[in-house]
């Protein structure tokens, strides 16, 4: 593979992402924010807890909503990154295949400090198995809650599904416009990718593992 993760991390880190006087980080054509991972964790796990207490029959729906938030986030964030000036300068020159788009995006994720993502296997257009070391979702969960019976990395799971959809279900190489219509086209397709977390730190596993496959809704 042509992707040099270390070079990508060094280049992205060299840009010194920090908030400006507006409190925003303009990067990758996006306005990012830096905030406590616990802020997101508390909100999402409180939402899930409320569903379980008030409407236990909707627990699965709550999980689906949190994963959907990850899919929408990845559509805009990963989509923005993969069509950005930064991507053109740093990652695009390394790309030799469509699979490199996935590997390049994972390298950028690792530069942003959302845990340590590692691609274990990638079957073109079919399946991605990825581990996350020090997932901020699971790490926060382990600290604040009892051991989970179910995996807890909802945003990461949605993100991985979104990445596969952008690369293989849509065509990120054609620089699409990230409209609601395009989202529905690729995420509501009968051949859309869905992700399931098969191992999770929150369940006592040594790391988190996410598998994305084509999985009709």
């Amino acid at each position: 593979m042509a992707i040099h993760e270390r070079a990508i991390i060094e280049a992205v880190s060299g840009l010194g992402f920090a908030g400006n006087e507006e409190g925003l980080i303009p990067a990758f054509g996006l306005y990012l924010t830096k905030h406590f991972a616990d802020y997101y964790n508390r909100i999402s796990y409180a939402l899930l807890g409320d569903f379980i207490r008030r409407a236990p029959e909707l627990e699965e729906d709550a999980r689906a909503l949190l994963i959907e938030a990850g899919r929408v986030c990845s559509f805009h964030t990963f989509g923005g990154i993969m069509t950005s000036v930064e991507w053109d300068a740093v990652v695009r020159p390394m790309i030799e295949s469509r699979e490199d788009w996935v590997l390049g995006m994972v390298a950028v994720v690792n530069a942003l400090g959302w845990g340590r993502w590692e691609v274990k296997s990638l079957e073109a257009n079919e399946r991605l198995v990825l581990t996350v070391h020090d997932s901020y979702e699971a790490t926060g969960y382990v600290r604040d809650y009892p051991r989970a019976k179910e995996p807890r990395c909802y945003l990461a799971a949605g993100g991985v599904a979104g990445l596969m959809n952008l690369v293989y279900q849509g065509d990120i190489t054609a620089r699409p416009t990230f409209s609601e219509a395009y989202y529905l086209e690729i995420f509501r397709s009968p051949r859309t990718f869905a992700a399931r977390e098969t191992r999770c730190l929150a369940m006592g596993d040594s790391c988190c593992e996410i598998v994305a496959e084509r999985d009709p809704i």
């Binding site: 280049a11 060299g14 840009l15 010194g16 400006n20 006087e21 303009p26 990067a27 950005s84 000036v85 930064e86 053109d88 300068a89 740093v90 695009r92 020159p93």
Partner: peptide
């Protein structure tokens, strides 16, 4: 900030410009 292949120009209160000179894109 940044290197020759990718740099950022920032004018507080005005704008940020991200430049990829080889790609001829900013």
């Amino acid at each position: 900030r940044g290197g020759p292949d990718l740099y950022v120009i920032d004018e507080p209160g005005a704008f940020q410009l991200t430049v990829a000179p080889k790609s001829a894109r900013a």
